[in-house]
């Protein structure tokens, strides 16, 4: 597999619900800059919005790294959400359609995964969760 090169990056702290909209706008700026089309932009930002809300709800916030990346001829956006919350005990269960421990619609993680090209989640109970997604410009 080809390695991913980072072209440009920025990080943001997410602590309150008011941080969600500026964060989405920042992701949009990154996506527009690499020339991502409107449908892929919308999918990426919706996925970002779902993940950032999860982070606020379950972990009380965290940090997000926004990166413009390239791999071979492809360019894309990678977002990494890192929190120090309670962690997810059973990731396989959390990724199942229709499952939710919170008051959301239960489409959070699996729905979000469908919107992006790469989805990676790591979690340790009591230590936190890291979710990383990639949306390619032409993905």
């Amino acid at each position: 597999m080809m390695t991913k090169m980072v072209l440009n990056k920025d990080s943001m702290r997410i602590e309150r619900e008011q941080d969600v909209v500026p964060f989405r706008n920042r992701v949009r700026e990154f996506a527009v800059k690499i020339g991502m089309g409107i449908v892929n932009q919308t999918k990426l930002i919706t996925a970002a919005s779902e993940l950032v809300r999860n982070m606020l709800k379950y972990a009380g916030g965290g940090a997000v790294l926004i990166e413009a990346i390239s791999q071979g001829r492809e360019t894309g956006i990678r977002l990494t959400f890192e929190d120090k919350g309670p962690g997810i005990g059973d990731i396989a269960l959390a990724m199942k359609d229709g499952y939710s421990s919170g008051k959301s619609l239960g489409i959070g993680l699996p729905g979000t995964k469908r919107l992006v090209n790469e989805f990676d989640i790591k979690s340790k109970t009591g230590e936190g969760t890291t979710v990383s997604i990639v949306k390619w410009k032409n993905g």
């Binding site: 409107i38 449908v39 932009q41 919308t42 999918k43 919706t46 779902e50 359609d97 619609l105 489409i107 699996p110 729905g111 979000t112 469908r114 919107l115």
Partner: peptide, 14 residues
């Protein structure tokens, strides 16, 4: 509703 929003909603499963 914008077309891109409609596409995204369906893929999201909403």
């Amino acid at each position: 509703m914008q077309p891109a929003v409609a596409i995204t909603l369906i893929e999201l499963g909403l």
